[in-house]
């Protein structure tokens, strides 16, 4: 359907169950898992039967054959975002060993079997030194292009505690991918725990917004000028409103954060990229076109199927684009961002 080849920046490869990781766990943790009846991280970001988790005919945890058959047909390169939330395991050493096991599993079951795929390094980001060690373990493997972090964390990602992760990512020229979900223990809203899944889902966009504010206002992009961050599965139509608000805040309050030297929206445009699913689009395409123009979206968006998750069709966006814009969003932006 498309004359150029796509780079799909969001395909999910989920660990089917803990036993899939047994071959890659050290003896100590293998025995511990068996004895304790531990089943794996308890983050419930994608309950298996919920309509957003899998589209018709897809598995909530697709295997390689399914991804090859249903996603990779018109895709030059596909980027895997594994959402195995080792961060929700409080035992940091176990979390670190699980991360290593997941990454080994990704290499053996995905990267070594399909050359069109790239993957994201799963890290115990609640322990930044251990996470940095994990990045160093895999950082020179050509199949890994990104470090994946859940958008919900114990502290916002601009906090200096995460610097070891960013140093390691830059050491290996890897991008950072912030992805829907996570289970850090505190509530997903500034006002406590909501009752319904739909509130968690709709509210996740606010946590992405908080992370953008933090990365910019806590100076992460001044400390790490080459840091590049993909916001994955958090929408993007909110970006103009956030740019306007934080630029205005900065005008009044920049003496509060002297190391934020440029307008916040400039950092956002320079360092951030956004996957296009979910679209969260206005019903009126004219309004969507205005949003795209307001934030200069043609340089910021990355094509993504978000397979197997199910959202409104992205064609609503793609149909608005000129051939040049389409080429950027389909592949050129990703090629530059991920060094492909």
């Amino acid at each position: 359907m498309s004359e150029h080849t796509r780079i799909d920046c969001d395909i999910h490869n989920e660990v089917p169950d803990l036993e899939a990781l047994y071959p890659y766990l050290p003896d100590h943790w293998l025995a511990y898992c068996r004895e304790s009846a531990f089943n794996g991280p308890d983050a419930a970001d994608y309950p298996e039967s919920v309509p957003t988790t899998a589209r018709d005919g897809s598995s909530p945890k697709p295997d390689l054959a399914e991804v090859q058959a249903r996603v990779l047909d018109d895709v030059e390169i596909g980027i895997l975002n594994c959402a195995y939330r080792v961060q929700s395991v409080r035992n940091e050493d176990l979390a670190a060993s699980l991360a290593t096991a997941v990454n080994q599993w990704q290499v053996e079951h995905w990267l070594e079997k399909e050359t069109r795929l790239r993957a994201s390094i799963v890290v115990p980001s609640h322990s930044p030194p251990l996470a940095a060690r994990e990045i160093d373990r895999w950082g020179d493997h050509p199949g890994f292009v990104q470090v994946i972090l859940p958008v919900r964390a114990e502290a916002p990602y601009g906090n200096r505690r995460y610097d070891p992760i960013y140093e390691a990512a830059i050491r290996h020229d890897l991008a950072l991918g912030i992805n829907y979900g996570g289970a850090p223990g505190h509530p997903p809203t500034p006002t406590g725990w909501p009752s319904y899944f739909i509130e968690d889902y709709a509210g996740m966009a606010q946590i992405f917004q908080s992370q953008v504010i933090s990365l910019v206002c806590e100076g992460a992009f001044e400390r790490f000028p080459s840091l590049r961050v993909a916001l994955i599965e958090g929408g993007f139509t909110w970006l103009p409103s956030l740019m306007w608000r934080i630029d205005k805040e900065w005008k009044g309050l920049r003496h509060n954060t002297p190391y934020v030297r440029r307008r916040p929206s400039e950092y956002m445009r320079t360092h951030l990229r956004f996957t296009i699913q979910p679209l969260d689009a206005p019903p009126n395409p004219l309004h969507l076109a205005q949003i795209l123009e307001q934030c200069g979206a043609e340089d910021l968006l990355l094509y993504a199927s978000d397979y197997p998750h199910s959202h409104d069709s992205q064609d609503f966006l793609l149909d608005l684009l000129t051939a040049d814009q389409r080429e950027k969003i389909d592949s050129a932006n990703a090629r530059t961002f991920y060094r492909l």
């Binding site: 500034p190 509210g203 992370q211 933090s214």
Partner: peptide, 26 residues
Amino acid sequence: GAPITGSGFPNHYIEDHGGMPQTFQA
């Protein structure tokens, strides 16, 4: 009682002040 973000406490007043729209959205 809960942090101003769904991802823990930020460092600066600008994040508290600029983060209030996220609270209204919630």
